[in-house]
């Protein structure tokens, strides 16, 4: 039973690793984010397989998104998504008002700049989890006011 703190330390080290071998420049920044996202993707696939092992079959896409917001988020981040909105046309916005991977950081401007690094892995997890449930998507995230953030899920038609 690993402690939550251990995951936070590991996550931070993952970010450090992804960035330390990169050179300056926008391109590199994108590559680092992609790496983190890809690692998250694989983790999301595994987690979802475990989490849905004993659940009933999902009815539809919305059912899946609700599962992500409630069960998945609670299992991973000890709380639910605070707000889920959708345009019913394949776009979902998941709002977490106190995202656990950001609460350790101060709200200063310079940290806001680095916030995307702290969201990439989680975006990957969501994308991986959805992918394993047969839902193809693009997941992005943004921080407006720390430690609140929004995850945007765009469903891709297969």
């Amino acid at each position: 039973m690993a402690d939550e703190a251990l995951f936070h330390f590991l996550h931070n080290e993952l970010i450090h690793y992804a960035y330390k071998s990169a050179e300056q420049g926008e391109v590199e920044n994108g590559r680092c984010i992609t790496r983190l996202e890809n690692m998250g993707f694989r983790v999301g696939q595994g987690l979802i397989e475990r989490f849905t092992k004993d659940t009933a079959r999902f009815k539809d896409e919305l059912d899946v998104m609700k599962f992500i917001c409630k069960d998945f988020w609670t299992s991973v981040f000890k709380k639910q998504i605070d707000n889920l909105r959708t345009n019913h046309q394949g776009i979902y916005v998941l709002q977490d008002n106190k995202f656990r991977l950001l609460t350790q950081m101060s709200a200063g401007k310079q940290y806001l700049e680095h916030a995307p690094r702290y969201l990439a892995f989680t975006c990957g997890m969501v994308r991986g989890g959805l992918s394993n449930l047969g839902v193809k998507s693009i997941v992005t995230a943004e921080v407006s006011v720390m430690p609140a953030c929004k995850f945007q899920v765009m469903i891709q038609k297969m």
Binding site: M1, E4, F7, M39, R42, V43, S75, F121
Partner: peptide, 12 residues
């Protein structure tokens, strides 16, 4: 569940 998060992340 949280332990699995750590285990899987470490694996990744």
């Amino acid at each position: 569940m949280n332990s699995e998060l750590f285990t899987l992340t470490y694996g990744a």
